[in-house]
């Protein structure tokens, strides 16, 4: 059972440069837990105090997970999860 996770340039230091990695889980939170086991350090870049970081966008297929169920969003084999740091500033 594999879900493809697309990793942005800035986080590829955690994936040995890989643009996409596989992970598994029934929810986004489980998926990120599995990612952390395979690529230690990634979780902290995505989650802070039990919530998705405000300036990290995570998409399930074509949807922003904030409009789905956040970390509780169900994920399934064949899905693609994309991580993109928000482009923002002042």
């Amino acid at each position: 059972m594999a879900i493809e996770v697309r990793i942005p340039t800035i986080l590829r230091t955690y994936t040995d440069g890989a643009k996409a990695v596989d992970a598994s889980g029934a929810t986004l939170e489980e998926l990120i837990g599995d990612l952390e086991a395979r690529h230690p350090g990634l979780r902290e870049r995505l989650i802070d105090a039990g919530k998705l970081r405000r300036f990290v966008n995570v998409y399930l297929n074509d949807e922003d997970v904030r409009f789905l169920g956040g970390l509780g969003t169900p994920v399934a084999d064949g899905d693609t999860v994309t991580v993109l740091p928000a482009v923002a500033g002042g």
Binding site: N57, Y59, D62, D64, R66, T82, L84, A86, V87, A88, G89, G90
Partner: peptide, 24 residues
Amino acid sequence: RMENAERSPTFYRFDSMEQFRVWR
């Protein structure tokens, strides 16, 4: 050209869905 989702004189942020489409 991107939308400033914040529409602010002191802050900017790309709209997350627009960013997704453009990055893809």
